[in-house]
Design a protein around this nucleic acid. Sequence first.
DNA 1: TATTGTTATACTCTATAACTATA
DNA 2: TATAGTTATAGAGTATAACAATA
Lengths: 160, 160
Amino acid sequence: MTPPKTDPAPDGALATDLGWAIRLVSTAFAGVAADSVADLPGGARGYLVLVALATGEPPSQLALARQVSLDRTVMTYLLDDLEAHELISRRPDPRDRRARQVLITESGRERLAQVRKSLAAAENRLLVDLSAGEADQLRTLLSRVAQTAHRESLGPTEDC
Amino acid sequence: MTPPKTDPAPDGALATDLGWAIRLVSTAFAGVAADSVADLPGGARGYLVLVALATGEPPSQLALARQVSLDRTVMTYLLDDLEAHELISRRPDPRDRRARQVLITESGRERLAQVRKSLAAAENRLLVDLSAGEADQLRTLLSRVAQTAHRESLGPTEDC
DNA sequence: TATTGTTATACTCTATAACTATA
DNA sequence: TATAGTTATAGAGTATAACAATA
């Protein structure tokens, strides 16, 4: 929107800073992906929950919260919202009456498919300057680091 | 802190999700880097400002805000804090009496060097499962995407 | 006593808009 | 009229703690 104000050779040292790059890429991705998840209850978090629910056994809310690295208190709000829009449903766990199983609905799967398609386009916009091979490399490397981080519990408690 | 609760083969679809990976890596990096910037005024943002000031001509606050992708209103608070700790200084721009030039102090350079050293160790912790070559690839690819994003103004207004 | 889910409170952060002083 | 910097206000988002039900 704002026409760039020249900046011919902008950041000398910042350009090689990993934290800087992560921050910028993260922000930029959030930007290009915003439209894709804009009308989804809970936004990006709602998307993460739907993805997590799309495969495997119906988890408890707590297990789900751990899987997507969210606090269990925000999971309550998030699921309330998603359930109100009939994208997920909750039912009591027959084995443990404290817990509730979370399931994705058919409607939820349809919305997920739509959002995924839209997100794929957004990703391509973000990675437009990379070749197909480089984009794949980046995905692979990021995923590996992410899985390490998740496994090591380097940051599962909160988010940014 | 919390002992991982098994999760033998955790996320089927999430593992290949780029947004998920970016989010997790971003959070994990913030986690490992937190200690490094904990005692720095403004935390991670203070660091970014010091890095940006370490090279080149003293910028105006607005130019600095654009460079590190922060709003100019938060730049005021941030610089107040950094100046109170004598890590930066402000002086009037002789060419434009509305503007103020921002300079890093000697003390600021020393702190920056300390933080950088500590951050390098944190980065290594995050990338521990990657080979040296892979880590370099990741840095390079992320930087390229970040520079594209920054240039395209895909997300310069705010942050996460 | 510990755990699952829920709710309420306080706090932090950010966005928005106003204001000044210059240009 | 537009811009650089500052300040104040309101709103969103989060963490913390407390609570009820169950194990």
